[in-house]
Design a protein around this nucleic acid. Structure first.
Length: 580
RNA sequence: GCCCACGUAGCGCAGGGGUAGCGCACCUCUUUGGUAAAGAGGAGGUCAUGGGUCCGAAUCCCAUCGUGGGCUCCA
């Protein structure tokens, strides 16, 4: 690679900065063992083995030491070495030795700057002065080679960019992400909470959050009914035997809560809904004429998640999946998958998500079902993706043991990806439950089962939604759509009558009758991200109007109530009740 | 589960071996004010929980619970 070219390559800059960081750490803490230091998205890290933990002060010192090494502007020198030479050079670096001994090549390369040598493929920037603008960000624990049986190393995360401006822009992006953090907005907008007394990972939906959830659920149910699904509803617990039959006791028990005794027999809280849907299926003999069956349920499940993995609404222990199971004939598989993909796109785009990253996961080494079955199902998934013109990545061997799947990650307003939709073919449970349908030949055949979720879980999806919109929900989702701001007490009556009229159109309206100045009420409404504020004072009462202020566009001037209602109707896509 | 950090009033934070402080919110009073914060007064905390060290612990030590940043694992 051309050196001047590599100087501008982000990965090269970051990888070089990682070397400089390791160098600085070695200068300040002689004897520290170094592991690996790769570039990553938005930065780089380096893993160290050091008996005492790094402190935030250490981070500052390391940063200063790096600045010195950068200022010295020493050239990075590339050298080819034999295996023996490499082993000798890194004789006191056990992690490097382990890596050196594993590669097949007899000749490898090292890079050196100012006496610090690292075993590395390169390339690097020309000299330490060219590592760009960098900043150390955090200290974290990380297992050597990502395996929890290995020792835990200390990882220092950092970022590096070609210029100071780029660095500043990145730090700004981090701030923006923090501003949108759903945990912070959840408090500020009074949407949900967690309680130590109740236990971690258990969500309490407050009135405003629960109202948004209700709107999402209503939309979801309506669309499912329109889309050829039927709704079912199943219990939260079932006998342990059911989970043995489904196989969850074998392959999912680590995520399940311990049994509770009911009249001598053990019951388990459900971690998934599928066995319940299969019981409904088995309740009667099914004809090929009935298929495909599409049963959907907002099913609340509980999974034991290790304490360290919980994260706001994104990863919780009790959550509601927007689940559905499609049971179909083999000849219906292709069209059913296309249909689900269409549905996924329709639903997600309603929530403002129009960019996706799609992954197709194929057969792993250990699997159930037949080879041909897997091939057919995987082909069907692939064909559906291609028919939809969706770009996707293949995760070879990444499928569950019971079937191949498509995962859809959505991109939010600031470009982050979130796992939501999943479409999975299942060869395991139909077998275990021995579900069949009677075909034209009068014999019992095995149907194919598809699990699918569009939003994933309501909790996670809500968290993603909050961050996507930064708490400023679009009109159709906003828990309060319009707030009336009477200027003085004498305007309360008019404000209430306007509010009443808006409510009769199905709008969600509040009246701020507090003894506060208008500027204060506006500020509060803005902070609460209420889409529309209607200011009413003497002028409005007199002229039978409302002064409209939009959360986004500011003062829109006075309108008659009729005009305002029409305006909202247009924004809602004609979704208003007709006048009584 | 593992590594590190943190836990002080509803929220955001300061303090730190000698018996707790700020801002906002809350309550009361004055004010009826026109597009992002009117003024005054008041109330509120066994400093996460349990144990230990000490004449004395919110402060130091240990454990537990919870939260955060990661690792491992996933809707």
């Amino acid at each position: 690679m051309d050196v001047s070219d590599s100087d501008n390559n982000l990965d090269v800059i970051r990888h070089s900065a990682a070397h400089v960081m390791a160098h600085a750490v070695q200068n300040l803490f002689p004897g520290v063992k170094i592991a690996i230091g790769p570039p990553i998205e938005d930065g780089f890290y380096y893993d160290f083995d050091k008996p005492e933990p790094f402190t935030p002060d250490d981070l500052e010192r390391i940063e200063e030491e790096m600045a010195k090494i950068k200022a010295a502007d020493t050239p990075f020198v590339r050298r080819e070495v034999t295996r023996a030479e490499a082993e000798k050079t890194f004789g006191d670096q056990p992690y490097k030795l382990e890596l050196i001994r594993e590669i097949p090549e007899e000749v490898s390369t090292v890079y050196e700057e100012d006496g610090f040598v690292d075993w590395c493929r390169g390339p690097h920037v020309e000299s330490t002065g060219k590592i760009g603008a960098f900043k150390l960000l955090s200290i974290a624990g990380a297992y050597w080679r990502g395996d929890e049986r290995n020792p835990m190393l200390q990882r220092i995360y950092a970022t590096a960019w070609p210029t100071e401006e780029d660095l500043a822009a990145y730090l700004k992006r981090l701030e923006e992400a923090e501003r949108r953090d759903h945990r912070r907005l959840g408090k500020e907008l009074d949407l949900f909470s967690f309680h130590e007394e109740a236990g971690p990972g258990l969500v309490f939906w407050h009135p405003k959050g629960a109202l948004i959830r209700k709107i999402i659920e209503d939309y979801w149910r309506d669309e499912h009914l329109k889309g050829g699904y039927e709704l079912v509803q199943t219990p939260h617990i079932a006998r342990q035997d059911l989970w043995a039959m489904s196989g969850h006791l074998d392959f999912f028990s680590e995520n399940m809560y311990s049994p509770m005794e009911v009249e001598g027999s053990p019951y388990l809280i459900k971690p998934m809904n599928c066995p319940f849907h299969l019981l409904i299926y088995k309740n009667t003999v099914r004809s090929y004429r009935e298929l495909p069956i599409r049963w959907a349920e907002l099913g609340t499940v509980y999974r034991y998640e290790r304490s360290g993995v919980l994260h706001g609404l994104i990863r919780v222990r009790g959550f509601t999946q927007d689940d559905a199971h499609i049971i179909c004939r083999p000849d219906q598989l292709d069209s059913e998958i296309v249909r689900v993909l269409d549905f996924v796109i329709k639903i997600l785009s309603r929530f403002g998500f129009n960019e996706y990253a799609v992954y197709l996961s194929t057969r792993p080494e250990k699997y159930v079902g037949t080879y041909e079955g897997w091939e057919k199902a995987t082909d069907a998934l692939r064909a559906a993706l291609e028919a939809k013109g969706l770009a996707y990545e293949v995760d070879e061997g990444g499928g569950a043991f019971y079937g191949p799947k498509i995962d859809v990650k959505i991109k939010d307003a600031i470009g982050r990806e979130h796992q939501c939709s999943t479409i999975q073919v299942d060869f395991n449970e139909p077998e275990r439950f021995d579900i069949t349908y009677i075909a034209e030949d009068g014999k019992a055949h095995r149907p194919i089962m598809i699990h699918r979720a569009l939003l994933g879980s309501l909790e996670r999806f809500f968290g993603i939604l909050i961050e996507h919109y930064a708490g400023a929900f679009p009109l159709w989702l906003a828990p309060v759509q319009v707030v009336l701001l009477p200027i003085a007490d004498r305007h309360h009556e008019y404000a209430e009558s306007v509010a009443g009229e808006l409510r009769s159109k199905g709008l969600r309206v509040t009246v701020d009758t507090r003894n506060e100045k208008t500027g204060f009420k506006i500020r509060e409404a803005q902070v609460q991200k209420i889409p529309y504020m209607l200011i009413v004072g003497d002028r409005e009462v007199e002229q039978k109007t409302v002064s409209v202020r939009s959360r986004n566009r500011g003062d829109l001037g006075a309108q008659s109530l009729g005009e305002f209602i029409a305006y909202l109707g247009a924004e809602l896509g004609g979704d208003l009740k007709t006048a009584d």
